[in-house]
Design a protein around this nucleic acid. Structure first.
Lengths: 143, 143
DNA sequence: CGGCAATCATTGCGATTGCAACGGCCGCGT
DNA sequence: ACGCGGCCGTTGCAATCGCAATGATTGCCG
């Protein structure tokens, strides 16, 4: 029985997962205490701030999250008063998600925090930042 | 009420999370059907193949996974016959995890699959592969 | 030598997730 | 006009996760 040799540190999916987890965790610490939202909810809010009124399906297509995850995140955000849900006029299957005034206020506070964190990452990467972004784009496109 | 503007696509934690999720998903498809293990269990097995007999705590420190996640993954692996658990002689608090013959056989089959997948990613990245690896190392070190 | 804080692994519990099934709604074809 | 297949969002259910508490064991320090 040969002893299988495998270098886990060189395995890129593992490395990416570790970094992803840490980045999300660090960023989450900067807004969870203040607003009490989770990562899934942050993504929905950020997407709404970017795109205005959109349906659940659009967020699903755009963020690669499960339908149910988006649906429940939207429900929690609605319960917390950050998001309003109303049925689309014309196609009553669709749900139009919109930021409430409270949601926009949160985003006004959150956007600079996110930008700052993003900038931190950029400076941390230094000269490799552009290559890193390119690599992410390529992996996302081909995966 | 100003409309908050934020470009989610430029937000690196988000991009990394998307790519991480996709890579893990794709790789998982290549072994889940054959061996019925999950990502957490794969990580434990890969680490055992690399490090021999180790305790739960070492895997936790090394992989940045929660104690309970590693513990349960080890329990599932033991139930499936891939891993053996025995108390460390000398310090009976520690649990020594070891690959069984069946576990080593699985790893013998899995290692080439992982290597191939890793190589695919490398070729996909092309000239940016080295910078990508450097960037991951730097983010991991500073996070 | 004895107690006591610390370490290690497990487990209970609440929350979240993914998958699949479902109910409501649309639009196409007839 | 009317089914009927398909799309959209929600929900039931099982599994997993994270966190905190617990049980078991060790090593330190008085």
């Amino acid at each position: 029985m040969t002893a299988p040799v495998f270098d886990l540190d060189a395995f890129l999916p593992y490395r990416v997962a570790m970094v992803s987890r840490r980045l999300s965790r660090i960023f989450e610490e900067r807004y969870r205490d203040r607003f009490g939202i989770s990562v899934a909810e942050w993504r929905v809010v950020a997407h709404l701030a970017q795109s205005g009124a959109v349906s659940v399906r659009e967020i699903v297509a755009r963020t690669d999250m499960e339908k149910s995850r988006v649906s429940r995140a939207a429900a929690r955000l609605e319960a917390a008063g950050y998001v309003a849900k109303c049925t689309h006029s014309g196609d009553r299957r669709l749900v139009e998600l919109t930021l409430t005034a409270r949601g926009r206020a949160m985003m006004t506070e959150l956007a600079p925090i996110a930008e700052a964190f993003n900038a931190e990452i950029g400076t941390c990467l230094g000269a490799d930042a552009d290559a890193f972004r390119r690599a992410l784009d390529r992996l996302f496109a081909s995966a």
